[in-house]
Design a protein around this nucleic acid. Structure first.
Lengths: 348, 348
DNA sequence: CTGTTAGCGCATTCAA
DNA sequence: TTGAATGCGCTAACAG
């Protein structure tokens, strides 16, 4: 039925072993023989059987990329960058690796399920992106699972995600706290004292880190951190919309809103506008991440740019074994404050 | 070294075959036996070897999802919806399928490479999303490749992509032409006669279809289709920005801009604003797709909503064999005109 | 309901 | 540089 390596061998009048060697290219083969084999491959339209190959070699060409939300460009940009590094040398069977993106939807059990599925496929590497879950039980399960994957020879890289000790995983972590601090310091420097903060979901590490930076800045300026000025939500615009209404209810004289990310900031803008408040004349708004649409917001959004594409590309190269991991296995990626039109001094 | 099925069998004191049956669940096994096996699996921390399993069964749990640009929510939303349907019954080995997203970046050779990789993995199904390439040679190559995949038992589903005859592929196509027609008709109905059109890349089918709808509307209203009023670009905001400047250069008295999609429309808005033109008082702007950020544009964007999530979910179910394909293997998914604040009658 | 027996298609020894 | 032989870990008949 389907063409096998043996068929190719017969046609090229060599042994199956020789065909295998030609295809994998990691063994000396006479040029004339190679040509004959390649010709037979083309004529027969032969495609290597991945499972059989992986079984015999005890490794595969699969590389998994785990993302929390594939519909969010934050993850899409990173995933695209990671995937773009997957070609080139490093893989078996022609150097092409199958980089696959797995959407966990932020659900802990799906995260573990995908890791099991990738372990089952004997993935060559796994890249986990974005914030992790704070839950201790889940973190323990993840640590165990990652440890087993690593033991089985799968390379583990974390991109924009906190390091997981004792697993040998390489971590490129984002300096969320530093970015958050700078952002809030920028607003405080403009003279704002009544800042609302829209945090992400409590259970994500990213949320805590950004909030921590915000609080550090408040402390540095000697501004009291009123817990009523912080609202938790999800990382989407709807959440920003609702949270902003709630913040305004608690303090109608708010002069600035700091959002967990850019989508949330957009929702905040919508809510403020609906309440007849101008941005930034009445209320300043700041986001985080600097996704492509942020510059098109009206007014353009002040935010913290994270080098998502660069970090993703680096993670991809490390996963492919084409770049040395950072010393100690951990590198911190800093964000950059982008001051644009959505923030200004408060009204006197 | 690694735990195998035989180890589990030994520990549970049953035959390997029985373990396999328990794990795959598609065969009657006594409850007590099943329990014993499951216990052994847990104790040994056993994970099925995917390649071996796929080799023996001649099919795998892999489902491929091809997207043109993973950083674009247009694709992210569809991919997420497709993937969300992958759990549940239908798969082997516990019903979980590994749905993997492959980012082609719109490059023809990467599209074919990924299909080969998926063919190599003996993927159970492949879903191709978004516009195809107009290039005849590439289409022929794709048809051949898809035909071979189908022959090998891989189910092929096209989502938001034109049907490919003679491959047995199921197609859920978007009515881009109809949406484009409605959109332009809406502007013409408001009284606009000097419309600029920012088309996508020439080589994508989506581009041609939307443009066709635009022209049909012009014809229906007896408005001349001046080719100088159409500019081609990419599907991103930058392209919309540049194209708009070009359109204004060609006709400074333009009263409306129709964009290939929402991102392009955002870029158009930025350019218009920079030129001191108000939206919609001076110039109306319309987009396409209705991505989540479109409603947050200022003013909110008039656009054509495509039911991306619904179509993706349906494609996913069909790929899983959990929903009947549409009669004839082809279904057309219509868009819905969303009239918002970015369009208004032209100034007298 | 369960055990036995063969391969699935390939990579990799070991010889030649 | 090439061929022959072996086994990777599992599933699917076929018996019992």
């Amino acid at each position: 039925m389907t063409v096998t390596l043996a068929d190719v061998a017969a046609r090229a009048r060599v042994s199956p072993a020789t065909v295998s060697r030609v295809l994998n290219g990691n063994y000396p083969v006479a040029a004339s023989t190679r040509e004959r084999v390649l010709k037979a491959v083309a004529e027969l339209d032969y495609v290597l059987n991945g499972p059989a190959s992986a079984l015999a070699a005890a490794t595969s060409d699969l590389v998994g990329i785990l993302v929390n939300d594939i519909a969010d460009p934050f993850f899409g940009i990173m995933a695209g960058a990671i995937q773009s590094e997957m070609g080139g040398p490093g893989g078996r069977a022609g150097g092409e690796r199958l980089a696959v993106v797995c959407n966990t939807g932020g659900a802990p059990e799906r995260e573990l399920t995908y890791l099991t599925l990738l372990q089952r496929q004997r993935a060559a590497a796994v890249v986990l992106t974005g914030g992790a879950l704070e839950d201790a039980a889940h973190q323990a399960a993840m640590t165990a699972k990652l440890g087993r994957l690593a033991d089985a020879g799968t390379r583990i890289v974390l991109c924009g995600r906190p390091a997981v000790p004792e697993t040998g995983a390489i971590a490129l972590t984002f300096d969320n706290a530093g970015g958050g601090r700078e952002l809030t310091a920028h607003l405080l420097g403009l003279g704002h004292r009544r800042l609302g903060y829209i945090a992400g979901p409590r259970e994500r590490t990213t949320t805590g880190q950004r909030l921590e930076g915000h609080r550090a800045a408040l402390a540095a300026y000697g501004v009291e951190d009123d817990p009523r000025r912080t609202v938790h939500g999800r990382y989407d615009r709807r959440s920003g919309y609702e949270a902003t209404l709630e913040l305004l209810r608690r303090d109608p004289a708010l002069t600035a809103v700091v959002a967990a990310n850019d989508s949330v900031a957009l929702g905040a803008c919508a809510a403020l506008r609906e309440r007849g408040l101008r941005i930034p004349e009445d209320v300043s708004v700041a986001g985080f991440d600097d996704l492509p649409f942020s510059i098109d917001a009206v007014p353009a959004l002040t935010t913290v740019r994270l080098p998502l594409a660069e970090a993703g590309a680096r993670a991809g190269r490390i996963a492919m074994g084409r770049e040395e991991p950072p010393p100690g296995g951990i590198a911190t990626v800093r964000g950059e404050l982008m001051v644009r039109a959505s923030t200004a001094p408060p009204r006197p």
